[in-house]
Design a binder for these strands. Structure first.
Lengths: 208, 208
DNA sequence: AAAAGTATTGAACACTCGTTCAACTTCCGT
DNA sequence: ACGGAAGTTGAACGAGTGTTCAATACTTTT
């Protein structure tokens, strides 16, 4: 029920297969590799069907962008089964997890950023998703350290995201894994740092 | 002398104008916006001339990639008129300077990364340039802190570059300038940190 | 069983693309 | 002043693009 009777194995839900094919092509060959014909071929579907489910090529790309954005947001979704501290720590460490640090995902993110930079329409979607992600990180920080003001949480979230984006990008360029691990530790330091200023050590942040 | 007699004002050196046009289009509209015709139009030149100076579209893009890579390398070029400390600090702060933090440059870098991710040939060029940049940063660190081993300098360089890439990328997404400034301070901390471990404070790096 | 609705196909259209090339202009050594 | 080299032009070609659409297959409703 729901989606057709079986035909052979599991080639149901062709709309998802089309979106999946688009994501795959985008991550492997960039936007130039995403033609309606290539998507159809990759999805094992006739050309016309791509335009049946997605009016435009633009709609198809928008759907891809939307899907990745949602996936990103779930990285910072609250998890009631953990303590606030654990939630925050787990979220921060997940960015170097096996699910995320794949070439496919990183490449996808990169191409979507580039796309958003080139096209006004995608840019708005992307900016909104980025803001929601920032809010998600800030909320996790706020839960783990309730004594902080919301503004300070947003500040820390911004600093954390800078490093996270750096990790995502740089791991595509082939930096060694040890550096990624140190960078993750750095995001944890930022998140869990004592209230206003750093410790008494000389590593304290100097306002410049 | 050298490059033609003047024709009207300064429309000499059409090859440079073509490359410039390609860079401009790439930064504004991404690789999809860089067609030979668009480049010719932007450079105020006939279509055929683009293929006269650059055999391929590939050669044109390679030239663009090469130019940006060289520009990046000069950011960490030694400057004999400064002390090692000043050289390092200046280089680290320059990544948030007005010359670099323009949409044009950042967008360009982003599209070139995306391009390198999609094409094997560009990837090699990009990886080599990235390595040279890493070496440049490590050399600056080594000069400023001669007591460090070369391996440790490379480590610090890698960590610094992660944050720098994060800044470049994130500033395109519209993070506030204050976060950029804090991130720069963070790269300076990494660069100038005491020899092996962090200070005695509880913000010391935990190996995880 | 007929009708209505949805899913799916591939040919066709009008464009744009990268590349080639014969023609033309401008320059410079002789 | 001539002739060859370098620079410059735009038309032409074939391949690939996004989109449309009439025709077909399959499902569900009547």
């Amino acid at each position: 029920m729901g989606t057709k009777t079986v035909n052979s194995g599991e080639q149901i839900d062709r709309q998802s297969r089309i979106l999946e094919a688009a994501l795959d092509l985008l991550s492997r060959h960039g936007i130039s590799g995403v033609s309606m014909r290539a998507v159809a071929r990759e999805a094992g579907v006739a050309l016309g069907l791509v335009n049946y489910y997605y009016d435009d090529k633009t709609s198809l790309i928008r759907a891809a962008l939307h899907q990745v954005d949602e996936q990103d947001l779930q990285l910072v979704a609250p998890d009631p089964s953990l303590t606030p501290d654990e939630q925050l720590r787990k979220a921060l460490r997940r960015v170097a997890g096996a699910e995320l640090l794949t070439t496919r995902y990183l490449s996808l993110r990169l191409h979507l950023w580039a796309l958003a930079q080139a096209d006004e329409g995608y840019a708005e979607i992307n900016a909104a998703a980025f803001d929601r992600y920032l809010d998600g990180v800030a909320a996790l920080v706020s839960n783990a350290k309730p004594e902080l003001s919301w503004e300070e949480c947003r500040e820390r979230a911004a600093d954390i995201v800078v490093i996270q984006n750096g990790m995502w990008l740089t791991s595509l360029l082939g930096v060694d894994n040890a550096s990624i691990q140190r960078s993750i530790a750095r995001t944890e330091e930022i998140a869990f740092a004592p209230s206003r200023r750093s410790t008494s050590g000389d590593a304290a942040l100097r306002e410049l």
